[in-house]
């Protein structure tokens, strides 16, 4: 048993904080894209379009059924071998792509469940005033589904922030990659990984705090 090197840990904090923008940037980009893709997938799952529906089911099944790490390797190391135009793909892009596809599969299912959870009267009222299917979805159903799905979606976002750490396996020097390099230089593995763990933890806690604000906002219309 040896004492922790607190000076080393304190010195490491600003170094690692420098990588927070990249970590959050990847997560935010992945989340934004995943939300769009997941909403489209979810609406399709509810509408059950011919021909497309089985493809969507297959997509969701594959990206939920295989590990994120395997998917990332498949995109970054595997795809360029069969699709020559992808040879230029960089690690950050591949990571965002992988996170988007992986999480959109999960999020599609919770958005689909939220859509079907919106009261039948809301669909009928939208139809009765003469809205088209897409007007009904965008104006009435999805905003109400968002409220139902919000807690789960924030959970996926938290998962995605932590998932960005896998980008270091694609050679991206993000927060985890930087920690790995620092630790390899100092041999203080415990200190280095403890610091990065705490930084992830604080980011997620800050997000949970923001979540309460978001939910209050989404519930505004439903307060008595």
């Amino acid at each position: 048993m040896r004492a922790l090197d607190f000076d080393y840990m304190l010195g490491l904090v600003p170094v690692l904080l420098g990588y927070v923008p990249l970590t959050l940037g990847m997560a935010l980009a992945g989340m934004a894209l995943a939300l769009v893709l997941a909403s489209l997938l979810a609406v399709e799952r509810v509408a059950k379009l011919p021909v497309i529906d089985p493809l969507v089911v297959l997509f969701i099944s594959f990206f939920r059924g295989t590990p994120l790490l395997v998917q990332l390797f498949l995109f970054y190391y595997g795809l360029p071998q069969v699709l020559s135009f992808l040879t230029q793909i960089n690690g950050v892009t591949a990571a965002i792509m992988g996170l988007t596809l992986h999480f959109s599969a999960y999020m599609a299912e919770s958005i689909r469940a939220a859509i079907t959870g919106v009261d039948r009267s809301q669909w009928e009222a939208a139809q009765a005033v003469g809205m088209t299917q897409s007007q009904m979805m965008v104006r009435i159903i999805l905003p109400q589904a968002a409220r139902i799905a919000a807690p789960t979606l924030v959970n996926y976002f938290i998962d995605m922030i932590k998932g960005t750490s896998l980008a270091f396996t694609l050679g991206v020097t993000e927060m985890m990659g930087a920690t790995q390099k620092e630790a390899a230089g100092s041999f203080l593995y415990f200190e280095a990984f403890l610091v990065v763990a705490v930084i992830y933890w604080i980011i997620v806690e800050a997000l949970s705090f923001a979540q309460r604000g978001l939910e209050t906002r989404l519930n505004r219309a439903f307060a008595r």
């Binding site: 009267s121 809301q122 009928e124 009222a125 009765a128 009435i140 109400q144 439903f222």
Partner: peptide
């Protein structure tokens, strides 16, 4: 046409 529902069916949002 316009429709008035038994359960009001106002847009909740």
């Amino acid at each position: 046409t316009a429709f008035v529902f038994q359960n009001y069916a106002l847009f909740a949002n």
